[in-house]
């Protein structure tokens, strides 16, 4: 018990005295997972919307692929990325192994199916008659997608947050492709693991506390959105 209180106290001191290592790791984590979520949105939302709103050959197959991807074990994502980017791999010449970029790619692989899948479910929930209404207002193809995405914006936002929550707390894939290099590819999760290995429990607890704070913040926002009554600013989009 003693060690936990000691650790938490130490953690709070580290966080509020602006310990450089802690903040470097925090910012790298946000940069990596933030850009991963951004690219996952670019990929996941259009795929989810298109697959959800259109009829096309292999639709069921593609939806099954997305759903499988939603449950893709992060370690599998890490392994897939490694096979491509290690030096002897197809993209080895890019020298992406053990870089933040590699971590972003692995996280995109984890998060984009989650975002696509939830978006897909969300747009399928939309009354198909609403699509007819948009068309009859004179909308072209892109206007239709845009308006229906806006209509599904709350679940889509939830999808993005779920994706973010999924990758920021993930450790297996990032340690595989990032290598957990201090000051370069060490993020909150891998830092916590490393600190435990090195016996630095106060640092480990500090990282875990920050991680918990972030995931709590994300989930809190998510809950607010799901209970969406009273969030005026979202309605105004």
């Amino acid at each position: 018990m003693e060690i936990i209180w000691q650790g938490i106290k130490q953690a709070i001191i580290l966080i509020f005295t602006g310990n450089r290592e802690v903040y470097e790791i925090l910012f790298l984590t946000l940069r990596v997972s933030g850009s991963a979520v951004f690219f996952s949105m670019l990929l996941g939302i259009p795929v989810g919307v298109l697959a959800g709103l259109n009829k096309f050959p292999l639709k069921k197959f593609i939806i099954a692929v997305i759903n499988t991807g939603m449950g893709l074990p992060p370690v599998a994502a890490g392994l897939i990325v490694i096979l491509f980017i290690w030096r002897s791999g197809m993209l080895g010449f890019l020298k992406l192994m053990y870089t933040p970029t590699a971590m972003v790619i692995a996280q995109v692989l984890i998060a984009s199916p989650i975002i696509a899948g939830i978006t897909l479910a969300a747009v399928q929930q939309i009354d198909p008659k609403l699509k007819q209404q948009v068309l009859s207002l004179g909308a072209n193809r892109f206007q239709v997608y845009w308006i229906l995405i806006r209509e599904a914006r709350l679940p889509a936002l939830a999808a993005v947050m779920a994706g973010f929550g999924g990758i920021i707390s993930e450790v297996g894939a990032v340690i595989m492709v990032g290598g957990n290099i201090k000051g370069e590819t060490r993020v909150l999760t891998t830092a916590a693991v490393q600190m435990v290995r090195m016996g630095n429990f106060d640092m480990a607890i500090a990282f875990v506390v920050i991680l918990l704070a972030i995931t709590f913040g994300v989930n809190f926002l998510l809950t607010l959105i799901q209970q969406k009554e009273g969030i005026g600013w979202i309605r105004r989009f």
Partner: peptide
């Protein structure tokens, strides 16, 4: 979108 990703990956990796 794949293109966007790849290009941004390149941009991102320039530093590395």
């Amino acid at each position: 979108s794949t293109f966007i990703i790849t290009t941004s990956v390149f941009a991102f990796s320039c530093k590395d």
